[in-house]
Amino acid sequence: MTAYIIRNLLYTILILLGVVTVTFCLLYVVPGDPARIMLGQRADVQSVEAVREELGLNKPLYVQYFRFLGKAVQGDLGRSYSTNRDVVETIIDKFPATALLAFSALIISAILGVMIGIISAVKSYTALDNASMLFALFGISFPTFAFGLIMALVFGFWLKWFPLSGYISEGPSYLVLPMVTLALRPLAIIARITRSSMMDAMTQDYVRTAKAKGLSAGKVIFKHTLRNALNPIVTTISTSLAATLGGAYFIEYIFNWPGIGLLAFDSILKLDFPMIQGTVLFSAVVFVVINFFVDILYAVLDPKVKLS
């Protein structure tokens, strides 16, 4: 087990190295001079030179790269061009909002998605199954921002059930629309994967045996089928969580939810490159780290995984 964890950890570090490198390249292939972008077109030559000196932009590219890498490892990603705040500090500030949204939405999608998937698989090829799977396909086809806008229009503007935009500090009703919007897509994906994984498991001999020896339908479904169908479902849920924890971009933007996604969008619109780098890097790191833990979880749950 220890060897497995160490091997995975080393590989994770290798991937993180790649992630940092790509993030570095993002800023340095930008046409134009970062110092000038930072100070604006009217800045005089002396101050531009001073900033270049301070950021190390006048050094060769490989020196800059190692400098960036060294600072990134220490958790220093520079300061925002627009607010001059520390990038990492800002991201840590915004993280709770994103985490709240991501966890609440993912809990809904996991529970409903698995339920819909199980019902679909058990009642496969019936009208109920067809309707659920059409709904799921609809869920993965609806662009998040378009769905968010329609939710805002119907429930925020026409029916006035929920506020259109704002943060939870103003009341729990502010969480509803962004949460439901965010939940739709993972819900649909989880329902689809649960159905197909359950269908696969149901054709196995051990399920037939379980049925043949007269176990109740509930026991067959939950103890024998679902347990063996669980692996891809867990992967899907954790991947969805890893993806949303790095920021629910469009939803935070539409509902003005002050998380990492909104921060990322704001910095993109302002061409605030250190902040863009910071949010991109943060999302990728969250994704890689969560996947690292999920891999270990697999090894704990299923001893066969360690050997491959």
Binding site: G246, F250, V280, S283, A284, F287
Partner: peptide, 12 residues
């Protein structure tokens, strides 16, 4: 390379 690219949220 695949794992590195995969780590980034596609849309961002």
């Amino acid at each position: 390379v695949i794992n590195v690219v995969w780590a980034f949220p596609s849309i961002l």
